[in-house]
Write a protein that binds this DNA or RNA. Structure first.
Lengths: 348, 348
DNA sequence: TAAATATATGGAAGCGGTTCCAAATAAGCC
DNA sequence: GGCTTATTTGGAACCGCTTCCATATATTTA
């Protein structure tokens, strides 16, 4: 029982109390095998007596590693982002690494972070979420001196960066194909703006898949069946109401995210359209509420994408990766209760 | 134009190239006034030539400060949490501090973090969001050797910790009083479980306010008008449907969060009740979607609470605080379109 | 012009760890 | 017992910065 010292104890205090050398204490801390049992327990006793905890900063400097991983992420208010972050935090919690987070809400900050964060002095690795690099960013990122993993982000000319992605073209195709196989011919697509300052690409790729499926089935694309706006449930609701007020309105809607699909369901309800009888709706993501709503959707592994990205990063620290990984996570069509066959229109 | 060096440049490289001493470079980096203009520009030239960035870890060790702030937060999927986090990140982005985040999803982790994170060697300050300490935590936190700010968290016996809180009792009272003044007598309350392992207190305090308002108006509390369950829109929907199926059902509902209020609105719609004519609904928080929905609610300053917490933390680093601050942020009743007077029942 | 004062500069010491090398001790072998 | 080898141990050197003190240079002042 002694007074709490003003300054935290250092490794030297422990060495003195345990009557051993500095190196020995360090070896005990780091579980080095070459310390005799007797010495080890003497040191442990001193450690707990002094309430000693190794100073992480000193450790980092000495190791030449920051033991820190940065996540650069846009608006972390969207469920798809927070789910990925949960996965990241979850995997990192068991490791020795700290997670530092940078939230991007402006293009200027995006550029600043992409330039300044991936430096060896700052962090050991970087995770970039849902922010696809633009042409100028590619060389910067490929030249960075720390491992980087892009999650839900990509660029055609990337070859030297790890990525965890979903094949959004395929996902869009599968969703649309599902509707086509149910007999739908007039299929709407509701999405974010395909072109945007942050270079979010998912809506764009899913749109490509949508187009592919249509043309594969010989259905011409009609631009009035594509609604784009800012991301959000209520924006989607507004868009789809306009679309559904047309004469020749769609019998099915593919929404680029579940959040937007919820908006579509609301709109249908407001317009007195029964889902799925009058309107089939399919979303994308399979966020938590999708199951509650019985929403048919394309599941992507959000939480797992974060976990996987961390695994890849940690592996790349240990040089285990011969070359950059581009891991494509599977998507899965989850058929629930918001899609059904277009009665009377089946042509198969 | 020279080859990218394998190792990042150090302050010594800069000193050598600029032909000055170590100390001088350090002074330039830290904007010390006592460096001559000529020397300063020589050093700057060398810095940009070597693409030099000071090593933060070394800086931290030397300064004896980690330049890092931890945020300990429960499930960061809830809008009220992510809004606060946004505010925190936003304020910290302009500072020199890094933000490291710990997500709490189990009680065990909560306890572990509360014990281990607030240490001088790890971080310079700690923000704890929406996790009220329990009795055993109080002495641990009060003895911690780094400044701590609780946000949306409190404990009756706390005196030595900074807090940014909302008077939830008052907020609950105001919400309920609003309904009473509209003539409602049968007022339901939908909330999280009042007792829960994480010791979330907001539902409890708002419940107190609800009770106060009722008894102030001479309305007896009826336990069948209080529904509690896990947090969430759909859980709330289920609860309120049961409540509304009773004979003597409430004419107004106070939901402990906007998320839950949305569930109430859904339930009303499913049951064919018009809002506000058949059922008045008031929420709490004023999250982004509340305005879209025209939801009457009690606004609390979520984003600002995060900003304010950071300000207090930074001030306490500079010893500017004579004693711990307990800042109560205002709430504001935002009357929109989901509450109206109980026609035919007005007794005033 | 010399002395006193103000301004600039160089670099050692120190922050608290890790690691490597040399030395001490223990164990094994003939 | 004496020699070799394996196991433990101590501590200097180092990681890259800041800071303080001593020294060098410039500026005032009498």
């Amino acid at each position: 029982m002694e007074a709490v010292p003003n300054k935290p104890a250092t490794i030297r205090d422990v060495a003195r109390l345990a009557e051993v050398g500095l190196g020995t204490v360090s070896r005990v801390i780091n579980d080095s095998p070459q310390v005799s049992k007797a010495t080890r327990s003497r040191v442990h006793k001193a450690i707990s007596e002094l309430n000693y905890v190794p100073n992480p900063t000193a450790r980092r400097l000495s190791l030449g590693r920051t033991m820190t991983i940065a996540a650069i992420t846009p608006f972390f208010t969207r469920p798809s982002i927070t789910e990925r972050l949960r996965g990241i935090e979850n995997s990192l919690a068991e490791s020795e690494y700290d997670l530092i987070i940078f939230n991007v809400e402006t293009v200027a900050r995006r550029d600043e972070l992409i330039r300044e964060v991936p430096r060896r002095e700052r962090v050991d690795g970087v995770l970039i979420l849902s922010l696809s690099p633009c042409d100028e960013d590619v060389p910067i990122l490929e030249k960075a001196d720390v491992p980087i993993v892009l999650v839900d982000a990509n660029h055609p000319s990337l070859t030297r960066l790890n990525r965890v992605i979903v094949d959004d073209v395929e996902g869009g195709r599968v969703a649309t194909q599902h509707l086509i196989e149910l007999g739908h011919r007039r299929i709407g697509y509701i999405s974010d703006f395909l072109d945007n300052a942050f270079n979010f690409t998912s809506s764009r790729y899913r749109f490509q898949g949508y187009r592919q499926a249509l043309s594969g089935a010989g259905i011409p694309f009609r631009s009035e069946y594509h609604g784009q706006s800012e991301h959000g449930r209520y924006e989607a609701e507004r868009l789809v109401k306009m679309m559904l007020n047309n004469e020749d309105r769609p019998t099915a809607i593919f929404a680029a995210s579940d959040t937007q699909a919820i908006g579509v369901l609301e709109a249908a309800r407001d317009l007195g359209l029964r889902v799925p009888d009058d309107l089939s709706v399919i979303g994308y993501d399979d966020i938590e509420v999708a199951e509650y709503l019985g929403l048919t959707t394309v599941r992507q592994l959000l939480f797992e994408s974060g976990q996987r990205a961390v695994e890849i990063l940690l592996e790349s620290f240990e040089q285990k990766l011969a070359e950059p990984l581009c891991e494509v996570l599977p998507t899965e069509l989850i058929i629930r209760k918001t899609t059904t066959s277009r009665s009377g229109y089946l042509e198969f």
